[in-house]
Amino acid sequence: MTRTRPRSPFRTTALGGTAVLAAAALTACSGGAGPAKADGKDTAPDTRITVNLSGKQARAGEPVKVTLTEGELRQVTVTDSKGGTLAGKVSADGRTWTSTRKAAPGTAYTVVARSATGGTAEAGFATAAAGKVNKLTLAPGKNTTVGIAHPLSIVFDHPVKNKAEVEKHLKVTTSNGTVGSWGWMEDWSGKDRVDWRPEQYWKPGTKVTLDAQLNGVDSGGDGGWFVRDYTTKVTIGRNQVVKVDLDSHRLTLLRDGREVRDVPMSGGTPGGDKASWRGRTVLMSKEGTINMRSETVGLGDAYDKMVDYSMRLTWSGMYAHAAPWNARYMGNANRSSGCIGMDTPDARWVYEQVQVGDPFEVEGGDAKGTQALNNGYGDWNLSWADWQAKSALR
């Protein structure tokens, strides 16, 4: 067994803004990576590296580059202060290692490099804190089961100017190789939003993972930095489609392509702001009993009611719900203030059957137009080609 000489202190000097470090090579008790003399002193040369980031206020948003002055790199480990690591690759000539992720703001990093001859060198640096932090809201939520039409949707707290750079860091994987595309828009709230949807509705049972690897990405402009990653997992539930025909005044629930039940309904009064939207919309939420007031949707003081079995379809206030006060019009006329109204027993049944993410396909002449892209989830009202064109990477 050879005796290991204790590591000598590192020597650090400034060289063009990079850190240059040297450390004596280490020799293991057995199977050592470097040759040793009979007196126990190792003869492996010092390992010297340069790191492109140094000091306590290094620039964030840059990949970490480690260069060996002589010889070949065997391994480089870059660890942050929270125990995370930056993966990377060694160049073909073995001289340089570059991280695949970028250094995040306000983070301390430790670099450990090992050469092919067994030498080891360490470096440390910290990045400047972000002047502004961007955050986001994901939908659907974590570990949820949703219907076949629910897109993956991200709304950002601050504007995103570097849309292509952000989109490159949004990774979607599925259990069955589903192909889809991101599409950017302005959310109903006025914030930047990006959704991911397949060409057709999801297949039931699909397992979906969104890994937003945004830590260290700059939003651009005045949007600020992302300082963490986000992950959500979603399962696609049963195959259900709700068809709403404004002309025949009927609502039909289909499951696996087969009709389960058909109920009479009354849509929005045609010819003005009270008409319903047509198009392929998505059930956003099941809200139970809520207070609906006409002032909130720009219809003056027309109504102020507690409404049961409320199912939100748009941000602008279009719901499917119980409307017993409108019973005389169910199945024969559209006389609501824009919503899809049903008798209470029918509304209760529909409410119990549908799942968030189910498509509501509304058609008929008694409509005021097609639901806007950002008014809820209007993604499916675009053709596949038009949807793909909304990606920042096209």
Score class of each variant (00 low, 15 high):
316 S>A: 13
150 H>N: 08
122 E>N: 13
368 K>D: 08
231 T>N: 13
264 P>H: 13
130 A>F: 07
71 G>Y: 12
362 V>P: 05
354 V>A: 03
19 A>E: 02
50 T>M: 11
89 K>N: 11
269 T>K: 14
199 E>P: 12
144 T>L: 01
251 L>Y: 10
77 T>N: 09
92 A>W: 03
115 S>C: 11
128 A>W: 02
237 G>T: 08
103 A>E: 03
182 W>E: 09
182 W>V: 02
350 V>K: 04
14 A>V: 05
284 M>E: 13
296 T>S: 13
337 S>F: 12
313 L>G: 12
2 T>W: 04
35 P>S: 12
330 M>E: 10
18 T>W: 02
117 T>P: 00
5 R>M: 10
368 K>W: 11
280 R>G: 13
112 V>Q: 07
28 A>N: 06
120 T>P: 01
259 E>G: 01
378 G>N: 12
69 T>G: 05
308 D>A: 15
242 V>M: 07
128 A>V: 12
255 R>L: 00
47 T>Y: 03
379 D>L: 14
257 G>E: 02
302 A>Y: 00
358 D>N: 13
113 A>F: 10
255 R>M: 11
197 R>H: 15
350 V>Q: 10
149 A>G: 15
317 G>W: 10
168 K>H: 08
179 V>P: 02
31 G>L: 07
49 I>M: 07
155 V>P: 08
245 D>P: 11
146 V>F: 04
232 T>I: 06
121 A>M: 12
262 D>Y: 02
2 T>I: 03
213 Q>C: 05
142 K>R: 00
345 P>K: 11
290 I>V: 15
141 G>L: 05
36 A>Y: 01
367 A>S: 15
137 T>E: 11
26 L>K: 08
70 E>D: 15
242 V>L: 10
11 R>T: 14
326 N>P: 06
235 T>L: 03
340 I>W: 05
149 A>W: 04
113 A>W: 14
281 T>K: 05
294 S>Y: 07
356 V>C: 01
10 F>H: 06
197 R>Q: 15
281 T>P: 05
162 N>V: 02
191 K>Y: 14
296 T>H: 06
298 G>I: 13
300 G>I: 03
215 N>S: 15
147 G>N: 06
339 C>W: 03
